[in-house]
Structure formats: structure tokens, C-alpha cells
Design a protein around this nucleic acid. Structure first.
Lengths: 119, 119
DNA sequence: ACCATATATAACCCTTTGGTTATGCGTGAG
DNA sequence: CTCACGCATAACCAAAGGGTTATATATGGT
């Protein structure tokens, strides 16, 4: 995945309306109108959100008559999950390590524990 | 984690400069200047990015003399990882199910499903 | 006391975002 | 054919984002 694609995915996920739409879509593909119902905003606003999700590659669209069927494409979110998961695990380890260090050396004050090993 | 906090975390992660800073911080805590070096921008710009990361809860800051020591707080990204991971897994299942359906159908009809590239 | 260093804040600029209303365009129904 | 429906697009607006330069604040060094 291109670096810029990660930007698009994360910024798409940064909006609660769009996260809500993705949650709806987790129940299966649907059309734009159905997707719009739970969200208190105009139809063009919904259309814009869908365009953002589409640009991020998070959804795919197929025209079926006058309806547009929308479904999730899990690949970009899988990639984002991989990126974020790598650091989540790594940082959690660090966090735990620092916790342990601080507790163990609670009395030895102020000195910089120093940089921890590279990956 | 509050709903709005997820907004902050994802939008903080949406910027490559900030993701870069988080990667730097994965090597251990450091000060603002060191954090700024790899990024070709003014010092105030760096300061702004740090404020964004701080508001999202992704970093913590301690003043040590005139330096600010910055370190990661893994908790919000862990929460985000949980959220995204839940859907990543779910959607992957759906995706695989559709794949399986298309392949099975292709076998029956002898036609190439052809729409989905293999990952 | 003075100057340099580390960082933040202010003021400004342009672009993007998220919303609106109005309109257009293709499709299905009668 | 005509009309309603499902959706997109256009034009507009206010607010937020990401950058800049200039300035302020606090600490450290001499």
C-alpha cells in the first residue's frame, strides 16, 4: 500500500459518520439510501462521505439499475490494521517495560533510562 | 475510550509526518529538537504536530529543564487497534466468503470470476 | 547580567473538509 | 411519454488543517 493511501484510510476512519457507515456495511452490502437513513444529514452529504470512503478504497460500488450497491473492501483496512497493530504491540511492550523499570527502580531518581533497542 | 477520542486518534494518524514521529518515538523517548530533525519544516510546524498527537493522547510530555521529553502513550492506539482490528477480521471473513462463493460458482459454470485479484 | 538554546504562541495564508441548497441525469413505473 | 425515484454534481459557506514568519517565555551557560 502506498504511503499516501494510508493517509486516506486513516482520515476516512477519523469521521464518526463514516465509521458508522462501515459498521452498517459490516451487516452486508446495501444501497445508498439505506446507508443514509441513520445519519441526520442531507443526501449530498452522504454522497460525499461515500466518495471519501471510495477514494480510500474502503468500499466498492456497483451500479444496479438506478441503485448503487455499496460493499466493503477489506484490503485497505487490513493494511492499516497491520500498520497500526505493529506499533500497538511494540508500544505496549515498551510501555510495560517502562512500567516495570519504574516500579523496580522507584527509589533511584531522575536518571534517563536511555534509549531502548531498535527494531 | 470516548467516541470523539477515536476521531482524534485516527486523524492524528492520518498525517505522514506524525506517523513518522511516532515511529521515531518507538526507538525511545526524546526531545522536540531531535524529533524535528528528520522532517523538513519549521520548528513551529513541528510544535503543532506534537500538540495534535498530545490532544489525541498518543504522546506524553514532561518538561525537563528547557527540554521537553516526549514519549509514546500506547493506550489510545491500542484502543484504536482494537476497534479497527475487530472490523478487519470481520471483513476479511466476509471477503474470503465471497471469494469462496465466486470460485465455487466459477467451477460450476466453468467461467472465470476474474473480478477479484488474489492477495 | 547577558546571550544562546529549546520550545511555545500569535498572526496570517491557503487548501481541505463537511455541511448546505439547487440542479442534473439515468432508470423504473404507470 | 411522463413522472417519480435514486443518486451525483455544482456552487457556496464556515471551520479546521498544515504551513509560514515573527515573537515570547523559560532555562542554561559564561
Amino acid at each position: 500500500m502506498r504511503e499516501g493511501q494510508l493517509d486516506l484510510v486513516f482520515s476516512a476512519l477519523a469521521d464518526p459518520t463514516r465509521r458508522g457507515m462501515l459498521e452498517q456495511l459490516a451487516d452486508g452490502e446495501t444501497n445508498v439510501g439505506t446507508l443514509a437513513e441513520p445519519h441526520d444529514m442531507s443526501q449530498p452529504a452522504v454522497s460525499k462521505h461515500l466518495r471519501v470512503l471510495e477514494r480510500a478504497g474502503l468500499i466498492q460500488r456497483t451500479r444496479s439499475g438506478r441503485e448503487h450497491r455499496i460493499r466493503i473492501d477489506p484490503r485497505p483496512i487490513d493494511a492499516a490494521s497491520t500498520w497500526i497493530g505493529r506499533y500497538a504491540r511494540f508500544w505496549k511492550q515498551q510501555f510495560d517495560a517502562v512500567d516495570a523499570y519504574l516500579e523496580a527502580h522507584a527509589k533511584k531518581t531522575g536518571k534517563n533510562p536511555g534509549k531502548r533497542p531498535k527494531r
